Amino acid sequence: MSSVIDLTRDLIRRRSVTPEDAGCLPLIADRLSAVGFRIEHLRFGDVDNLWATHGAGGTVLAFLGHTDVVPTGPEENWTSPPFEPAERNGLLYGRGAADMKGSVAAMVVALERFVVSHPDHPGTVGLLLTSDEEGVALHGVREVVDHFTKIGQRIDACVVGEPSARERLGDLIRVGRRGSLSGTLTVHGVQGHVAYPDKAKNPIHSFAPALAALAAERWDEGNADFPPTSFQVSNINAGTGANNVIPGELVALINFRFSTASTADDLRERAEAILRAHDVAFSIDWHLSGHPFLATPGGRLREVVVGVCRDLCGIDPEQSTGGGTSDGRFIAPMGAEVIELGPVNATIHKVDECVSVADLERLPDLYEAICQRMLG
């Protein structure tokens, strides 16, 4: 059994439900220290982060990942225990197998191989890991980047190991991500008896026409790299539980996934203008999770990753900006070129999460080839 499978199994056994690390980072730090990496443990709040580097100066190539995983859901629904790795029919099962302990293991193995075969490589290669990606992501990479900014640590190119592939390794890479803007909207009404609507103000009725307008709005047309901005309501809550009481307020959770064709400020202003135009009495708490980012066509890392997929996987990868968000959104504003390359994402966050053993055994070859072409 290959070392990448062994390490992935060891990581899966550690019950690192966000923001817990459960010993994953010390395990990885010990391995990389043994081949000459400098190790920095960065703890912010209740979150552990690891920054391991080899070399000095020159181009700074970073690999980025996370050791935390989402909760399993009812463990009895899993075919095998979620924190006991199991192989069946060429697949390795376990929570985090695809998202993203398999990629983390592949990065570690690739970096070990690279520095052993290129001990005097030009530039700097690094591995940045956090235990706060699947949760609120306040004290993970977001805070590490703040720390890097203060001390002058730069990153020029970054490979994120998020599971990106659709059907087989190398068939899709992420060359950017949309921004995410969320809002907690409170519509204010006046509680009362349903038999006396003249003495109350129903916030559900107030919000309904505005919601229809928000849902019908064409926020932008997107562009060559991104689809149009989307608006979604993920939750609406109102009422006391009684069928004879008009509620006093309504709370709705809303989200924009937006392209570079719009800005967060513009979306906020337009959404609030629609609410005001429909005479909605409201307050709203906005949260910007991240701005959109894009690796410019012709960028060195983008060309290298595309070339590696062609040469090692025999496929011309789709270059996508779809999907949700990743910690790459914190690295890109540093001026770094960010590309995401990882295994198939079909089972992430699901019961019986799994990864192809064959793909996982090949993934270190891709990451090592990126190191060689960027820094070799």
Rank of each mutant, 00 (worst) to 15 (best):
V351G: 00
G123N: 14
P209G: 06
R13Y: 08
G189N: 00
A273P: 01
A86E: 07
F44Q: 03
G376Y: 10
T130N: 06
H349S: 03
P247R: 05
P292D: 12
L127S: 05
R362L: 15
A358Y: 08
L275F: 03
G248I: 11
G290I: 11
E75D: 10
R310Q: 07
A215S: 10
P122F: 11
S80P: 00
R329S: 00
H41K: 02
H147Y: 14
G73R: 08
D21N: 09
D198E: 15
G290R: 11
F330D: 04
L25I: 10
G36Q: 13
F282C: 06
C24Q: 00
L169D: 01
H54A: 05
A34H: 14
V60W: 12
C371V: 12
A281D: 10
Y367D: 00
G323R: 12
M1Y: 12
A332V: 08
N89W: 02
R276F: 04
S2T: 15
D285S: 06
R302S: 02
E112C: 03
L25R: 05
A252N: 04
V338D: 00
C354N: 15
P85V: 09
P247L: 09
V344H: 02
S80E: 08
L61M: 13
A52W: 02
V47G: 03
D225F: 15
R14W: 11
I274V: 15
N345V: 00
T124F: 08
N223M: 08
S80R: 10
V141E: 01
S182G: 14
G57E: 13
H121F: 05
L366T: 05
L129I: 03
A277H: 14
I284D: 06
V4W: 05
H278L: 11
I173W: 04
G45M: 06
P333M: 10
G135D: 01
V233H: 09
A346H: 03
L172W: 00
A346E: 01
V160W: 05
N237I: 11
L138V: 13
R257E: 11
F37S: 03
A137R: 06
D365W: 05
G176P: 05
L169Q: 04
G376W: 09
G183W: 01
T263F: 12
V187L: 09
L61P: 08
F256Q: 10
I39V: 13
E272R: 00
V4T: 12
A242E: 15
G96C: 07
R166D: 15
R276Q: 14
L7G: 03
T186K: 14
D198L: 13
E353C: 08
S283W: 02
V194D: 11
N244I: 15
T347E: 03
I274M: 08
T53A: 15
A200R: 12
E84H: 05
S230P: 02
L250P: 06
H41A: 04
D359K: 04
L91K: 15
A22W: 06
